[in-house]
Write a protein that binds this DNA or RNA. Sequence first.
DNA 1: ATGATAATGAAAACCATTTTCATTTAAAGG
DNA 2: CCTTTAAATGAAAATGGTTTTCATTATCAT
Lengths: 156, 156
Amino acid sequence: MRRKRIRNWENRLREEGYKITSPRKTILSVFEQLGGHPNAREVFNDLSLRSPDIGLTTIYRTLELCVRLGILKKYDFGDGHSRYEIANEKTDHHHHIICEKCSKVIEYRDFLDEETMLIKKIQNKLERKYHFKIKQHALDFYGLCKECIDEKQGSE
Amino acid sequence: MRRKRIRNWENRLREEGYKITSPRKTILSVFEQLGGHPNAREVFNDLSLRSPDIGLTTIYRTLELCVRLGILKKYDFGDGHSRYEIANEKTDHHHHIICEKCSKVIEYRDFLDEETMLIKKIQNKLERKYHFKIKQHALDFYGLCKECIDEKQGSE
DNA sequence: ATGATAATGAAAACCATTTTCATTTAAAGG
DNA sequence: CCTTTAAATGAAAATGGTTTTCATTATCAT
């Protein structure tokens, strides 16, 4: 399954006339293997041991290219860094919980059916009311994770 | 009503031991009078004619202070700038629609009752499932506004 | 009115991200 | 497999949003 998905992004790049280069493979393998929502610097740090030749510039460029091609999704959760996530099949609908202290991001997929029903209602109304073409939505929660709650209470 | 709200943030500043200075009054008046979701530079530009002495540094400091005190809310909608909004009464529950092209932000308050019911269910489950202390949520929509739709079609 | 200290604003600095430019590499074609 | 072309790369420089430094100004308590 994973190999198929890797081939998918390679196909996607070729379709659009881009080359399949070693740095690009390596960078995307970070998302394939570790998943999560790293920022550019975290990807760079993760690769600095096993692929020290990949420059931060290349990482920024590759992430932005993959966002444009729909291979990755980009988020700004408020910690001053853009964060990236592999874009799975369109059927993989999920949202996020973000810790305001340590910036940890957790994906959640709870109550998606009920959410989808409500989202459709809201979206239909908003598109008509404000003459907007809505492409996507986010239903995110912000707060403190377990570790940051424990740390805060430990210091108080 | 508006004068009362102005006095509220003045009280809030005094309560926390901060001075009520002229720059602070001026900066917050931008939010009182114009509302919206300006970024620091937009506030600075707005004031550059009628209050040219207020520095960009002071604007950044004041906005951040007011966010910490709950007078303003801070958002990162993905356009590379932090944006700010006056924090109304807690009963003023609303969310946003963001244009991905021109960064226009529209507030909406539709279907809030249904949303609140669903949010409570999701939040209760997520807090228990992930040991998270959730403080706030966002249900935002991203797309293209009427003007950007028209402009795109005009150029095609 | 005075004094203390917070607040201010310009300049400098920081940092995330982007651009420039010389070099390297992927891939098409023979 | 070799050659050629142009895309990709990476380091340095640059950009721009935001923060810090430092000398000066202003608020507020007395």
